[in-house]
């Protein structure tokens, strides 16, 4: 076995270009699916807070499905299964326009929305109902009591969980390689099969993922500090 030498990977312009492309796609997949997840989570949360039992049940089933079925299976179901249900013209369009990445974004976004909505809901539930009642009794409108009393506290409660699940979404974006999205993990495997430098390639991948996760954690800590109580600082 040759000695451990990172420069074999990093100094090779072809491999470097592949890595950069992979990182780009990882960020795009993770970022767009984060936006999808957040938007959908807000919808799910709102539906769950309505008094309709049926609506609440539906959201509960949605959450339960996405939390108890492996993310990989959800991806496969979208890519191999649901793609078959689409009209032919649309399937062709998707094949021409990086369909794997689009399906990965949909699957990851829908899956993570379940987690995000639960995080936000438990953040909200931690606020005693007396607070809302007090705010209303003081003459705040519903919107204002939400905006000035409930939400700032709820966000503070929910931030740690949301940050954790953002990181797991970022890590889960690596599963997209299973349906052929050329993101970082996919590129890393490609480089490995060309260079046979297993340890070097996977060390690079580990450092890249670890670094990004730590940055996300740092951002999360900053955000948490912004919303923290002045007294607790």
């Amino acid at each position: 076995m040759q000695g451990f030498d990172l420069s074999v990977i990093l100094a090779n312009p072809e491999f470097r270009a592949m890595l950069i492309k992979g990182i780009e796609l990882t960020f795009i997949v993770a970022g767009v699916s984060w936006l999808v997840a957040m938007a959908l989570a807000l919808v799910l949360l709102t539906v769950r807070l309505t008094p309709s039992r049926l609506a609440q049940r539906t959201v509960a089933v949605y959450v339960s499905y996405h939390r108890n079925v492996p993310t990989l299976v959800q991806l496969m179901l979208w890519y191999f299964g649901i793609s078959n249900l689409l009209p032919d013209a649309m399937q062709e369009w998707l094949t021409d326009h990086n369909g794997e990445a689009i399906f990965a974004i949909i699957a990851l976004g829908l899956c993570q929305a379940a987690y995000f909505s639960e995080d936000m809901r438990s953040g909200l539930r931690a606020i005693p109902t007396g607070q809302a009642e007090a705010a209303r009794a003081l003459g705040h409108s519903y919107v204002n009591s939400m905006r000035y009393v409930i939400l700032p506290q709820a966000i503070r409660n929910a931030i740690p969980a949301l940050v954790n699940h953002t990181i797991s979404l970022f890590k889960n974006s690596s599963l997209a390689m299973a349906i052929g999205v050329a993101e970082l993990t996919h590129m890393v495997r490609e480089i490995e099969s060309r260079s046979f430098r297993t340890f070097e390639v996977y060390t690079v991948a580990t450092v890249l993922y670890l670094g990004t996760s730590l940055v996300l954690m740092g951002l999360g800590a900053m955000l948490a500090r912004r919303y923290s109580l002045a007294a607790a600082r």
Partner: peptide, 10 residues
């Protein structure tokens, strides 16, 4: 802080 799939391949 790294994906399981990367650990597995590693």
């Amino acid at each position: 802080n790294t994906p399981f799939i990367v650990q597995l391949f590693f």
